[in-house]
Design a protein around this nucleic acid. Structure first.
Lengths: 129, 129
DNA sequence: CATCTGTTATATAAATTATAGAATGTTATA
DNA sequence: TATAACATTCTATAATTTATATAACAGATG
């Protein structure tokens, strides 16, 4: 069940929220390689926003090797197997989270528990392909 | 060894970078409860930026219960023991990281390894106070 | 062909980010 | 007490980012 929810009053720009929501749907297994995304205009209509805002969100994911644009003008989830470029981003996300949790006094066990808890809700592979 | 490094060309605003750097220093154990932060003007001078920008960074941390202002004079690291409000933020950071890592095909073990790796560089408590 | 699609261009408006200066009041200290 | 150092508040400005709006264009689809 794919759902894209945006908070129009959030401090996070809408186009970033859209990207986050789609990534979350992929992580949960609701979207996977080969699945088509809604067209710019249709998603814009659903969310009641301008389609350039959707285009900006898709642009982020194009640049991040998460989706591709096919000749038939459809955006499709397409994540390459080896994407070394992304490791730096992953570590940055991780550091931001762990630094903050550490500062707030969480123990290592508590941090790992949170990770396990969230990962278990995702379609995380248990082994490599 | 406290170090605050900002990238003036980053897409991340300077005031957020300052906050991130200070949080990183606390997580690493280079700064701890009771330590004084540089004055607005002195840090602004060091970083060659306007002191209002530093003020905005400190404002984020005041709002986030990481520092306090003593007697209208000095900003001091001051992190309360129980701060339930922060748990939501911590989980948001965690979700962003784990979603992205999941999408990029990392296994649960690999994700935990990254967490362990980063946590070991921090002064993470092994047990609660 | 008519429609839907993404692309590109231009334009506008609001909000955010960053800098700047000045006035004010507090604290510390010499 | 006088001074310096400090944070606070206010106003102002400029650049950038965010979001919307409209239009024209070309490829794909039915």
């Amino acid at each position: 069940m794919v759902s894209i929810i945006v908070d129009y009053n959030s401090k996070i720009p809408i186009y970033k929220q859209i990207r986050n929501e789609i990534i979350h749907n992929i992580a949960e297994g609701n979207l996977q390689n080969g699945d088509e995304l809604p067209s710019l205009r249709s998603l814009a209509g659903t969310l009641q926003i301008n389609y350039h805002t959707v285009n900006k969100a898709y642009g982020l994911m194009l640049n991040d090797n998460i989706i591709k644009l096919f000749k038939n003008k459809r955006f499709v989830i397409s994540i390459p197997d080896n994407d070394d470029k992304s490791m730096a981003s992953i570590r940055e996300y991780a550091e931001r989270f762990i630094d903050y949790a550490t500062v707030k006094g969480l123990t290592k066990k508590e941090i790992i528990d949170i990770v396990n808890n969230i990962a278990d809700q995702n379609k995380v592979k248990s082994v490599k392909n």
